[in-house]
Design a protein around this nucleic acid. Structure first.
Lengths: 336, 336
DNA sequence: GTGAAAGCGCTAACAA
DNA sequence: TTGTTAGCGCTTTCAC
């Protein structure tokens, strides 16, 4: 079935295409009678504007790229939801790509999105520095870039949506101490992630404040998946490092750790309690439910979307950094 | 920074735009020397084709919509991955939308995608019949439609990618019986989902074969989320219906059920074993790990993508139904 | 208040 | 082998 265009309307009403266009756009220079006729006919024939034509006309693609490290957890889909809520009513299409925690794949994704002529990219970077040059180049080319969650190093001035990782990590550790724990391990994830370091800082600060900091309790993982969390715990046990609780960088690491503990018949939280950062259903679908910092993911997505709109409208607009608040939710994994 | 167009190349090389175009397209009617010059200059100036212009020219948007019921589990992101693997190299952008198990939202999504001028839609329907008219209308309008997983009622002839739910459900139930279980509950999900009924058939057939079918063991849930699974188990317990194992329609229902059991200190699998349908990491990140039918989600995505390509190329091409195979993976939730 | 025409970037039929 | 031109669907000057 052929699409109805402005031309079809023009013919069937014996009016010029300009008049049709004006009627459709609610222009002031249009007789209201004519407009009614046009609108009726459009409705009748089922006219739908051709967005491609408009995009060509206005030199924009109305495509926004979203680059995320993973989609195994609902983290990114919640972000996506927030983004879409803001962007779709404005006619933007969001194209999501997964980096699988690989900076190289991330780069491929960026290039793909460039080929797609995206007007802007919202990105959760999987490495602090690796693709910095690419980010720079894209910005220079006029692509609006907005970062959230995992941001690039400070040397790159970009709009970003983040959490105060240092403070929130402190909160978690304080809570563990309040429940009587003294040997708190930090399963930290790769140090090429900025937030990993930020949270480590909060962790260390609180433990030092209480005089119970022990660097042996920090375990770095290679990756960010469940098995990495499991391996970390295994490592602690093999090395015979005593611990009575775990602060994990992410819920994936935390859950991996929990499952390893359960396998070894270690009671959670009685013997080892666990807490982490999340914001997704993952915290509540495991047993026991996981105490975690509830990141406002949908709001973060919305915020990132608003930032990118500003940037698209005016590429030279100032690079804002929005710090979101987040609540620590106490659940069974740290409470008796 | 202004985009480099074919015109810029034309000027800087004093060649017509057609010659530039031909060089870029590797046309036969081009002097190889000229072509080299063009290619060099294009590279030098950083020329990138404007896909919007091409889309307008060819009357396609190169947008494919993906409609899924939920993105809380990695189910849909795996499907997406398969789809993107096939479609992105061909220049297609995939736009994903979530229905949240609501036929009404699904309808909104379809309309949105229509506004986006998608060339086709790949859809996991959340209701067997509710949006049938819309599907029909879109097909008539020339939009390629491909269904996977949850398909519409038989009255609509469309390309689809499915599993043999009846057979696979039978497998699961046979396995439970083999492990000595006799009171097998089926947590079935809403009956507006076709597969729910299909799996019920398999379930009933096997139980009847063994003479242990009891309709009281079938619990219908309102929704498809974790809490629905929990409620279902609660219902069985409240109604005092004895059961020693659970076959859940989906991993979400299964996990909800498991967590409720664990809360009540019911041992899995010793007292009650649990099995379901999955294909995602969810089966392995819970404790005990969940026995489930491993749906080949990435492959299903790829297959759906191939089907839609055929349909886009030739809208009147036959509507194939592809039945994927799936393996039952035995895990701790049914094994001692 | 309406129409004619140019142009967004590109390809393809037609001429040369 | 190359250039000229029309046209994809739409908006927007410029005339009338």
């Amino acid at each position: 079935m052929k699409r109805i265009t402005i031309k079809d309307l023009s013919k069937s009403l014996s009016l010029s295409t300009s008049t049709i266009s004006r009627a459709l756009l609610n222009d002031k220079n249009i007789n209201s009678e004519t407009q009614k006729r046009v609108l009726n006919e459009a409705e009748k024939l089922g006219y739908k504007p051709n967005s491609t034509a408009l995009n060509l006309k206005y030199g924009k693609s109305k495509n926004i790229g979203l680059v995320v490290p993973e989609m195994v957890t609902p983290f990114s889909s919640k972000i996506l939801q927030g983004i879409q809520e803001v962007l779709e009513p404005l006619g933007y299409k969001v194209i999501i790509t997964q980096s699988n925690e690989s900076p190289l794949v991330e780069r491929k994704n960026l290039e793909l999105l460039e080929d797609f002529n995206v007007d802007g990219i919202i990105i959760n970077a999987c490495h602090e520095t690796y693709n910095e040059k690419i980010y720079r180049k894209m910005i220079e080319k006029g692509t609006a870039l907005v970062f959230f969650d995992r941001i690039p190093s400070k040397s790159l001035d970009v709009p970003k949506v983040i959490l105060d990782d240092h403070i929130k990590a402190s909160l978690v550790v304080e809570h563990l101490i309040n429940t009587g724990k003294k040997r708190i391990a930090y399963i930290m994830g790769p140090s090429t992630i900025r937030n990993v370091i930020e949270r480590a800082r909060g962790y260390q600060r609180i433990l030092e404040k209480h005089g119970i900091f022990d660097p042996n309790l920090i375990v770095q993982t290679e990756g960010m998946m469940f098995e990495d969390g499991a391996k970390a715990v295994q490592q602690l046990i093999v090395k015979n490092i005593e611990f009575d609780s775990i602060f994990a960088f992410s819920d994936t690491l935390a859950i991996g750790a929990m499952n390893y503990l359960l396998e070894k018949n270690i009671k959670i939280p009685q013997q080892v309690s666990v807490a982490s950062f999340s914001g997704t259903e993952l915290s509540t679908i495991v047993h026991p439910q996981l105490t975690s910092v509830q990141q406002p993911l949908i709001k973060m997505g919305e915020t990132a979307a608003r930032l990118i709109l500003k940037k698209i409208k005016e590429i030279s607009s100032p690079n804002e950094t929005i710090v979101m608040d987040a609540e620590l939710i106490y659940r069974a994994s740290t409470l008796n």
